[in-house]
Amino acid sequence: MSARLSAAFAKGHAALVCFVTAGDPTPDATSAILDALVEGGADVIELGMPFTDPMADGPAIQLANLRSLGAGTRTADILRIAKDFRARHPDTPLVLMGYANPMTTRGPEWFADACADAGIDGVICVDIPPEEDAELGPWLRAKGISPIRLATPTTDAARLPAVLDGSSGFLYYVSVAGITGKQSAALDSIEQAMTRIKATATIPVAVGFGVRTPEQAGPIARVADGVVVGSALVDLVAEHGVNAAEPVRKLVSALAEAVHSARKEVA
């Protein structure tokens, strides 16, 4: 697995994982937003690959997908954005997150090669569960790219090992059964889930879905290895468009402060 991803979770504090959609509002505007995430203190960047049918996403990220595709974003643009990011930020891990069809449409080998060429560290494919790993996983692993899987409140102890098998980088714990950006989970349920998952997982666990503010992120950072924030950042892009970099940097900075200063109780 990627050294950059390992390092991001070995800083002595919880990692802040920040999501924005590539090409939102335009392909040209994304680089400045990504720079703002790094400047604000994000430890891992998740770059969303827009898809016409984002069925696991709530309204905020659905609209981001539509804005991006409406601005003419192509897969080639996303890979170029990633490659340019890698040139500017040699140490910040970059993860692509999206849906199976755009990732596999030119074949898994093509996609894994393109990711490797662009300096991408990990791939989260929402609709490839472990049962369909052969669709993409082997090709990513062969290139040293981490397949990052999701675990959810419906992933029970019997199923968890299958989810972890073949995944690396970190485990993305989706704290509520639902779509992105809607409700958030109660802290005690997250804490129970962390205890349960950490009994099996040997890779870091980041918690996401419904985390919008430093006040929410801080307490989660005490029990998890990382905190994922997405829809709140995407909402800022929706509001400020091509001028979103500065408000994004401010929110990330406040989130990073809360996440980095929270005392981790679980090693």
């Binding site: 609709d127 569960p129 049962e131 959810t152 419906t154 029970d156 199923r159 989810v163 989706v174 059964a177």
Partner: peptide, 12 residues
Amino acid sequence: GGRYVAETLMPL
């Protein structure tokens, strides 16, 4: 065919 769904739905 297959089962290309989000993890939340897999157990179901």
